[in-house]
Simulated assay, not measured.
Amino acid sequence: MENYGGYFKALRESKGMTLREVEKRTDVSNAYLSQLESGKIKQPSPLTLHKLSETYEVGYETLMEKVGYPVPERLSRKQEEDKGSIAYRVGSITNDEEVELLNYLKFMRSRKK
């Protein structure tokens, strides 16, 4: 994915978290997270991606794939076959559609508060 910064920002916002809250949960600095979301970090480390995957409740393989790391095909395919996944329920979606869905989820959650 060329510009995955928007994806990371949408993930964070869909959870209703600030950069500081993510920093506290992951021990990844607020400044680094900001640079990641703005696209200034070109290749985050697998360790950072693992911490973020746990915090955002997204598959580690998904984040690895988003930033361009190779992921074995069987792991990528397994996510699509998971009956709880969006892809299983609505079919394949583009990266842009995924970001829009995350933004909509953020909006829906903000209305409930």
Rank of each mutant, 00 (worst) to 15 (best):
V99T: 06
S34Q: 07
H50D: 05
T26V: 08
M64Y: 08
S29M: 05
K42Y: 00
L102M: 08
R109Q: 13
S38L: 06
G6F: 03
I93T: 07
Q79Y: 06
T26A: 06
R109H: 13
G91M: 01
L33G: 01
Q35K: 14
S38W: 00
Q43P: 00
E81M: 11
K106F: 06
P46R: 13
Y32W: 08
Y7F: 15
D96F: 01
E54K: 15
L47E: 13
E65G: 04
S34K: 10
D96M: 00
Q79W: 03
R109Y: 12
K66Y: 09
S29N: 05
E57S: 15
E81Q: 09
E81K: 10
G91Q: 05
F107C: 01
S85I: 10
E73S: 11
T48C: 11
Q35G: 10
T62C: 05
G6D: 10
L36N: 07
T94V: 01
L75R: 10
L49R: 04
T48L: 07
E97A: 03
Y69I: 13
R20S: 14
M17S: 04
S92E: 09
R20T: 15
G59L: 08
N30Y: 11
R12L: 04
T26S: 12
I41T: 14
G68P: 06
S14H: 04
V58R: 06
Y104V: 05
G39Y: 02
Y69N: 09
K40G: 01
Y60K: 12
L47M: 07
R25L: 09
Y60Q: 09
E54N: 15
S92M: 03
P70Y: 12
Y60D: 05
S38C: 02
E98C: 03
K66T: 14
S76M: 13
K15P: 00
L49Q: 04
